[in-house]
Design a protein around this nucleic acid. Structure first.
Length: 305
DNA sequence: CGTTTTTGACCAGCGC
DNA sequence: GCGCTGGTCAAAAACG
């Protein structure tokens, strides 16, 4: 129904305008929770997460996600308007046709927007993650599917079968600090200047042995307070901070993969850490949204009929 | 002393 | 074929 328009809308937004989108601040509905006590810095947050390249089938059935979130589906993006800021939790899920991937976006204002595309997903995600990657991913995907090996010669080099597609998603966070604490330990292994941007992109790897997860952190070139964190891969272990601190214990995973679990963990950690910097009222408001509190029990419920 | 960061070099893929 | 770019490696430096 409106899914197509949602996709189109979002796609156009992400096309080279990701930064512009975020530079607009949450005027389109996402709440901006500003200011620590001093109103200084990292208090203002505008986190969003964009799933990319996550085969829907590997996570759950098409209806599961909406059900998991326990919220309404397919509300038009346009309906978000300024009213979205009133604090009422809202989730929009367009699960697409099942063959596609899933691309939800979490807004910290209690709004969770899920926009999905099938073939266009990688382009959307890649805009957040780095446009070239998207193109590359798409092309590789195409070539893989078409069995085209004429152009792409995979050398058995030191990296083995490199460039295997990993689940990838991007957090977009408004923050003064580049490297946001997400509960995992990361080691920086590279940094590159980003084309058309004064800000470099940093490459991190999870320090846990045999954990293949990587992430890239870069700032929006249009709004230096916007940090784009792109995760790639799945953790093969539990979140160290969660295990220790146990601030968030998730139920046994509903999905066959731990990806979504990790995502929720990370989101939770981010929300936790940012919430800690909020004013009490804001904190109250925030917890009232109960995004994670709602999500997690829902997972348990739906997982056990 | 072990771990992490920095940084220049290298490699692969892609467009022209 | 060449140049550009993204991603990764690895040695050295910095840090706790």
């Amino acid at each position: 129904m409106s899914g197509y328009h949602e996709r189109e809308h979002f796609r156009s937004l992400f096309h080279d305008e990701l930064a512009a989108l975020f530079s607009q601040r949450p005027t389109d509905g996402a709440a901006c929770i500003s200011g620590g006590p001093s109103g200084s810095d990292t208090g203002a947050i505008f986190p969003a997460v964009t799933f990319t390249d996550v085969p829907l089938g590997s996570m759950m059935d098409n209806d599961a996600l909406p059900r998991v979130f326990g919220l309404s589906c397919s509300a038009p993006l346009d309906a978000l308007g300024p009213g979205g800021r009133t604090g009422s939790p809202e989730l929009m899920v367009d699960v697409g046709n099942g063959s596609g991937s899933l691309t939800p976006t979490f807004g910290c204002g209690g709004r969770v927007t899920t926009v999905t595309t099938n073939s266009s997903t990688s382009s959307l995600s890649a805009e957040a993650a780095g446009e070239e990657d998207a193109d590359r991913c798409k092309k590789e995907e195409q070539q893989e599917e078409e069995g085209d090996t004429s152009k792409k010669v995979k050398k058995p080099n030191k990296q083995g079968e490199r460039r295997q597609r990993e689940p990838r998603f991007a957090f977009v966070t408004e923050s003064e600090v580049d490297h946001l604490e997400d509960g995992y330990r990361w080691r920086k292994y590279g940094q590159k200047a980003v084309k058309n941007s004064p800000y470099p992109r940093s490459y991190y790897r999870c320090t846990t042995q045999k954990c293949p997860v990587k992430k890239r952190v870069e700032r929006s070139y249009q709004n230096s307070t916007i940090v784009i964190t792109t995760y790639e891969g799945r953790h093969t272990h539990r979140c160290p901070a969660t295990v220790r601190g146990s601030t968030l214990l998730l139920p046994p995973p509903l999905m066959s993969t731990s990806f979504f679990q990790d995502l929720v963990m990370q989101q939770a950690h981010q929300l936790n850490s940012t919430a800690n910097q909020m004013l009490p009222l804001q904190q109250l408001e925030f917890s009232h949204y109960g995004l994670l509190q709602d999500m997690v029990p829902s997972l348990a419920h739906h997982g056990q009929p």
